[in-house]
Amino acid sequence: MSEAKEKPEELWVKCQSCGVPVFRKTFIENMLVCDKCDHHHKMPARMRAEILFDEGTFEEWDENITSVNPLEFADDYEEKLEKDKVKTGLKDAILTGHGKIEGYPVSMGIMEFGFRGGSMGSVVGEKVIRLLEKASEKGMPAVIITASGGARMQEGMYSLMQLAKTNAGVLRMEEARLPYITVLTDPTTAGVAASYASVADIILAEPKAIIGFSGRRVIEQTIRQKLPADFQTSEFYLEHGFIDAVVHRHKLRKTLARLLAMFNGK
């Protein structure tokens, strides 16, 4: 949760789901999961890298790729980019690199929802394909943790083209016969759901993440009826056959390690 970083002077944080105040230190130790209602709050990409990788093994890739404003989109797009750079400590909506999980080498992309809602424009597309190209060249498995509202509107059709570009990277992994695993976190929707998030060998999801193509409100307007509360959640897509497992954040590192071990033991 971004609050945890923005107001470090406050001792308590309020759970965004149940509203119960949680002691900040406990909240962070708990990986931003509410100890009362188990709500998984959105997690900054760098914090996730710290939690997932063996200590000191993570090395970042392509950290200096940054967005331009190719369509000269007005609406203070550039200002917003600068603001989010300061807020997240990243230059765009994904952190990529490689490291080890319980000793197993793995390349990884971690999306940052705090940066323009995790939206995918040219930078995210380029970093994803470079990640998958490097992984396939080095013979390393790849994991991508998604958190995105979809394609980045301000880059127009360049953004739509990233759906093909990132999937081209996935194809590289398939050709190299290397495991590609995705972890869908809240939210994973539209353009990112409709590209590299959902064409992995193994698809995991965090509990109660919102997943889907069209937005809930758009669907409700179209069909003129209210949708059930659990519509488009991880559990919903697990039931419908689109996800292999819903994994609690506390067990994610162990789960990835187990899978990496099994693929390694072929």
Binding site: L163, N167, T189, A193, A197, V199, F213, S214, I219
Partner: peptide, 19 residues
Amino acid sequence: PGKEAEEKGQYEAIAGNIL
């Protein structure tokens, strides 16, 4: 953008064709 379309994995159907 319909209920059944989402239940049947609209996003996966699109991603699968792109791949």
